[in-house]
Amino acid sequence: MSIEIRNISKRFGAFQALNTINLDIQSGELVALLGPSGCGKTTLLRIIAGLETPDNGNIVFHGEDVSDRDVRDRNVGFVFQHYALFRHMTVFDNVAFGLRMKSKRERPSEKVIAEKVHELLNMVQLDWLADRYPEQLSGGQRQRIALARALAVEPKILLLDEPFGALDAKVRKELRRWLARLHEEINLTSVFVTHDQEEAMEVADRIVVMNKGVIQQIGSPGEVYEQPASDFVYHFLGDSNRLQVNGSEIMFRPHEVSISREALTGHQPAEVRDVRPLGATTRVTLRVTGQDELIEAEVIKDHDSLIGLHKGDALYFRPTIG
């Protein structure tokens, strides 16, 4: 089901949370709303769900204006950053909740509900936890249960608010790959909010970069990274260096650099301040005469120039762009 966001604005007192947002999300797409905290991304997600009412504008699901429709009638699945599992219910009852709340006419029998719940718990690979309470689970398990609960009512749209924000780094990585795979399988129109550019790049089909209540750029991960529409997008999507050359300033990413131990043409001298192996790449921090800001260069770990390189050595470098 497609989502159209038309001229949405929202104020909280004097704070303009969203300013005339327009966005089209295609059916089956996985879209990331990316931006720093306070940029309005969560507010936008809550407006799509119906948890927040916009001051202006409309939300259209599959050609149908749902702006005046109540939360419970929008048929969206929602996953919260802090899970929001019902603490007094078992995992099974949590997942069954949405089905049991249906009106008598639509409610399936307990037997059908049990089948459906176990099917969902198997999908998130946690069927063995059905009788536990949320407080007995780890963060990653809780979030997968929250996802199973959201999917139980067969929503047409899945909204995720910083779904991995409260998890530690390793679980976060596992879970977001798992989510991307799951999305491929069930192909549900999904929108997720994140402040982590790596997460957005890894999972999303398209990224919507937001700042201060305004959309900065919409594009595929490749587009927003390679062709940033503004300085803000450029800086937000990755590390960057600033280098003063003949009074003008050029910006480049740490990997967009060529380094050498000898003075080659176009290369400028620098002093090595730090050498950090990061796995597949090694980061060299350089100091250039004439500017306080340090330059970071990332090269593959087998690079010839790295052999025997120490702090204090001289190194020559050249940005490979611009």
């Binding site: 948890l51 929602f78 919260f80 802090h82 929001a84 599992l85 019902f86 909740f97 949405g98 959201a150």
Partner: peptide, 20 residues
């Protein structure tokens, strides 16, 4: 948040109060 989750899962106001 638990109340919001209940609403999103289709619970009426009374169901939300009673069950959550």
């Amino acid at each position: 948040q638990e109340e919001e989750a209940a609403r999103l899962l289709g619970a009426s106001g009374w169901q939300m109060f009673w069950h959550v």
